[in-house]
Computed example of a mutant assay.
Amino acid sequence: MLKMAVLLSGSGRTLDNFHERITDGRLAAAIEVVVSDVKEALGLEKAANYGYPAFHAPTSAETNRILKDYDVDIIVLAGYLKLYTPPDDLKKAVINIHPALIPSFCGKGFYGHHVHSAVRAKGCTVSGCTVHFANERYDEGPIILQKSVDLEYDDDADTIADKVFAIECETFPEAINRVDEKGIEFFWKRVGR
């Protein structure tokens, strides 16, 4: 079972999903601490209501000072909108989800609705999500798991966002379970060979 720190910037929908799946046994993890770079993030309120230690920290350095007090195996970026720099001992243990199939529609500036609008503008007939390890560049770390969704010709960006989020709710916990089963190094070793 992995011990997680969850970093978020917004409403905490992914935190809700993790909490539900940990509670019913579908996610082999424990949330040790939740940190947000946004002081008024609804996700912090939800974390506190669930009983998780919840903190505001606007920078990576401040976040890392908080994390020193907790025993965590992985740091999960759950709608965290800043480029995060982890402490050295957790450098390979940061997991992110991207709302598209990397290497498409990724990199700096491609997050949330920007991604879904770009997918729509290109006329894609599939989209999806990618769970990957994060490194010092946006969306370039080793991929853990990807899943796709079919799109209709008349889907707008909001419809695409809804379809992708629905598959994210399945994919993110499944990817964390795979990391628990295979170990972090497995994924770093399988790329760049």
Rank of each mutant, 00 (worst) to 15 (best):
K68H: 11
N96T: 07
I97H: 10
K82M: 10
E45R: 15
E45H: 14
Y50I: 06
D69C: 12
D73L: 00
I95H: 10
K68E: 15
D88Q: 12
Y52K: 01
V76I: 12
K46F: 08
G79M: 05
D88T: 12
V76N: 10
N64A: 03
I66Q: 01
N49G: 14
Y80S: 09
A47L: 03
N64P: 03
A57R: 02
D88A: 14
I97V: 15
A54K: 04
E45D: 12
N64W: 00
L77Y: 02
I66V: 07
V72W: 01
R65N: 13
A78V: 11
Y70V: 02
K68I: 09
G79P: 03
T59S: 13
E62H: 09
V76P: 04
K91F: 12
K91G: 11
A61V: 13
D89S: 11
A61K: 13
L81G: 11
D69E: 14
D69T: 10
A61I: 12
P87E: 14
Y80L: 09
P53L: 07
T63K: 03
V72A: 07
P86A: 01
Y80D: 07
V94F: 05
L83G: 10
H56C: 11
E45Q: 15
L67M: 00
N64R: 04
N96K: 09
D71T: 08
P86G: 00
I95S: 11
A93R: 15
K68N: 13
E45Y: 13
H56Y: 15
F55C: 08
K91V: 13
V72N: 05
Y70R: 02
L67C: 00
K46Q: 08
I97D: 10
E62Y: 06
A48R: 15
A47G: 09
I66H: 00
A93D: 13
P86W: 02
K46N: 08
Y50Q: 09
D71H: 08
T85W: 09
Y84E: 01
R65I: 08
P58E: 07
Y84C: 04
F55H: 14
T59K: 06
A78T: 08
Y80P: 07
D69G: 14
L83D: 09
